[in-house]
């Protein structure tokens, strides 16, 4: 899926945070009730796998919320979506009496995967735009009337207040 319309960096970050919390909530549900979920999907032999996916969701959710650049973690979610899709697809067999639930779950995974890809691309685009701005040159902004070497010690006339002085015992030994 390609990014149909770029969104602002702030909106992309908000979406990422939303996906992070969604990830943690879904992961907690998968860890807390893998049997119920497996029963609902007619995949009783996949309880442990669902619990493992729950741990993965929580890890990526925390990663998204913790990172200053959540894009890699959103891409990790996309990878997880592919795994979820593959696992659910195996449950579409005609022998599964819960095929309907599996279809609903697949549709949900596809929708969320679309959001994940959109978010990851938006974050990357905004980062690229920010990175293309020219670097400002502040190498002459000293604030001094003279070069720094000439200003060193210019305020030695300042009397450090008594409460902020280093105790005498901690001062350097005087030069010999």
């Amino acid at each position: 899926m390609t990014c149909a319309a770029p969104i602002s960096a702030g909106s992309a970050e908000t979406l990422a945070r939303g996906l992070g919390w969604f990830s943690i909530a879904l992961g907690a549900l998968e860890l807390a009730a893998p049997r119920t979920l497996a029963d609902t999907l007619g995949m009783k032999d996949r309880e442990h796998l669902i619990a493992g996916y729950g741990a993965r969701e929580i890890a990526t959710g925390v990663g998204i919320l913790a990172a200053s650049d959540p894009a890699p973690w959103i891409w990790a979610r996309v990878g997880g979506d592919v795994l979820d899709f593959g696992t659910l697809a195996a449950g579409l067999s005609t022998e599964n009496p819960r095929r309907g639930s599996v279809f609903v779950a697949l549709a949900t995974v596809m929708t969320v995967a679309g959001l994940d890809v959109f978010c990851a691309q938006s974050l990357a685009m905004n980062r690229r735009v920010a990175g293309q701005r020219p670097r400002q040159d502040y190498s002459r902004r000293s604030g001094w009337p003279q070069p720094p070497a000439a200003m060193r010690g210019a305020a030695r006339d300042f009397d450090v207040p008594r409460d902020m002085r280093t105790p005498d015992a901690l001062r350097p030994y005087p030069p010999n």
Partner: peptide, 12 residues
């Protein structure tokens, strides 16, 4: 941040 480091160097 490169600009901040430039300004820091300018200050000595």
């Amino acid at each position: 941040v490169p600009e901040r480091l430039d300004m820091a160097r300018a200050g000595g």
